[in-house]
Design a protein around this nucleic acid. Sequence first.
RNA 1: GCCGAAGUGGUGGAAUGGCAGACACGUCGGUCUCAAAAACCGAUGGGGUUACACCCAUGUGGGUUCGACUCCCACCUUCGGCACCA
Length: 799
Amino acid sequence: MFYDFKKIEKKWQNTWEKSKSFHAQVNPAKKKFYLLEMFPYPSGKIHMGHVRNYTIGDVASRFKTLEGYNVLHPMGFDAFGQPAENAAIKNKTKPDTWTHKCIREMEIELKKMGFSYDWEREVSTCDSFYYKWNQWVFLKMFEKGLAYKKSSTVNWCPSCQTTLANEEVIEGGCWRCHSKVEQKDLEQWYLKITDYKERLLEDLKQLNDWPERVLSMQANWIGKSQGVEIYFRVKQADKVIPVFTTRVDTIFGATYIVLAPEHPLVKELIKGKPQEKEVLAFIEKVSQESKVVRASSDVKKEGVFTGVFAVNPVNNEEVPIWIADYVLMEYGTGAIMAVPTHDQRDFLFAKEHKLPMRIVIQKTENKGQKAEELKEAYEEDGIQVNSGEFNGLKNVEAKVKIADWMEKKGIGKIQTHWRLRDWLISRQRYWGTPIPIIYCPKCGVVPVPDKDLPVELPKDAPFTGEGGSPLGKVKKFVGVKCPQCKGKARRETDTMATFFDSSWYFLRFCSPKFKNGPFDEKEAAYWMKVDQYIGGIEHAILHLLYSRFFTKFFKDLGMIDFDEPFKRLLTQGMVLKDGEVMSKSKGNIVDPDIMIEKYGADTLRLFILFAAPPETELEWDSRGLEGAHKFLNRDWRIQDSLKGKADLSLSRILHKTIQKVSQDFREFKFNTAIASLMELTNAIYQSGADKEVFAKLIIMLSPIAPHFCEELWKVLGNKESILKAGWPQVDPKMLVEDNVTIVVQVNGKVRLKIEVAVDISEAKLKEIVLADKALVPWIQGKPVRNFILVPKKLVNIVV
RNA sequence: GCCGAAGUGGUGGAAUGGCAGACACGUCGGUCUCAAAAACCGAUGGGGUUACACCCAUGUGGGUUCGACUCCCACCUUCGGCACCA
């Protein structure tokens, strides 16, 4: 007999919807649990990645409900973005129409999976009711000086025809289309995320329940590096060149300094020098090189001498000033001190251009070694030599002492440098939130007043996909009165990066219909933080960093009282087929919809949880899917063979299972939880089940296969939904056994297993074990040197 | 180069100091059947043995321990992030 999943699944989905089973309301008397999965881009179809992400979330959510929590489990759509523009052009429709159609299709697919969302809280970021508050947040940031416009060299994707944030450039390519990113000088809007760098780094320490690799990626990205800025005076000129180093302990070995070709001082320094022409030619050559080529470490380090010298402030030594392509203007001060003996890049450069070297740090056993003998730079720790009054110190100690000494003498300053840059949010695209700014010839940059929000996206823009700010072509949109002087003015035509939209949606979910602000502070105070967040590792930097930034900003506005939005984070692994990521281009996609059609949503959910732990990659296996289906059918058939009271051993297995499954669910170890439920099922097949054992099995399975279990729950005669059944409790008495099997080892090897009473004394056990004939070949009268007892488990006899 | 994660049967995986391979998939055998499917029962790391016994085995090499997949040291491989970052 097979269960009719098509009928059952449809039926329960309708029931849940009608009875608003998942509608969440503030209830201070109950403990809340906010469970959130990263909301999807509405492409119109869900893929296996979504299925996995949302199944993990749904099981956790339903489990928490059964445990008695007041659960908030919302869903929405990250609906702005470029694919809608491309699709609209291709299908001769409008991004608005296309996106809404996709959202409707996606809702249907998500509902078919039986996910327990509170659909009344659904939000779409492309809805002006939502993006109004993007604009509001932007203006708050503008007011606080955190949103600003500046002219700068920016990342430009020639294919998407728009600018990109640093975080959106992956290996020199566009994160979306992988085109090679170009550099362009443009005036753009930025958010001053760097104002929050200290907190963004420091607060990572609070995130004990985040995966280590995400924390390390964020810390890497923020890139704090502590060191000293050292001032080199230029010889015969009234100029000072600051350089930044993290290795101030090597300062006595600095035998030349190098400036980036773009360094503003270069042209001044070389003016009238014999080297001027050569240097200018070199700068020109480097400027032609792309960032990617220049950054590749295998390219030979090239450079030229400027003809000018500087003075090393610690020993007043004259050192030549060079220009080289391996020094970058964007980092530090755009100038370095070169210590060829203790930095491999400097070493290679010095060898190439025959520059002097001096060893200043040495291992004791290498005493007397000369710089010319080095085959490569010595970058490890050692003892200071050739370092004036610091000779003989360990370099680690010298680092601190030299820094202090330099600060006192005014020749250096302890400083911290960061990798993190401000967030460029302007996009020259149509399908996004308009930046609420007006340019007035008289008043300058004027923010749109709150009462005029939202600045609505015109529905009739001639978007062509060619970029160049489509909004700029809509006269009605651009032409506007200045809110201050009422004169003729012009609107900003760039839109916001879509990561802006998703940086606070978790707060909007707390009160999605709120009209007086981005979110109702009282509701947010109850629901936030997100207790469990689940999503893909691809957002380890981008979305998670921006959301953390926004949260801190809201805290500073006094709207919330916490620093971090997501208490626990789980990053689920990817779904693979034949060892490769499922993708259209590889043609190895398995369509969830077809699998639902064939096996039902419950089977799909069960398989995807059973096949691998949530965090690791999952290899798609259609035979495994059949196995999952088989298991459900096995449980379905139990209803025909229920019998009288369960025997003691089955009851014990039941309670062990309750204990194991409860623990596994809390730790997101769904694969082993399912294994335990399978073992319980096998045990029932061995001994037959009474109604109570079967009912508890069904409750424990219900977060995973909810439709299936609701149906069986009803078959068992229950009137109310299984959602109200409550999580089964362990009876500690049932976990206690009368007898235990003790493993007997001799010298660490298993030689015997014996069954003894659970409360046997050590002396008695020792007596029994040593008397056992089976051990004679191993002991044979050798003296027992040690007798190790692990209670209720094992003894080890050492002879 | 730096940071992080991982390496276990034919396959997915389990065990985080105490019986390595739970639970599944696959394969083989059996029951039922005219037959097949489904279902149910059993076997299934390698060597060895008629069968047992026994030996070997968690990327490699060391170490700690009565005892190591698990802890420590060194190395190899794979994946992910950052990177001429000074």
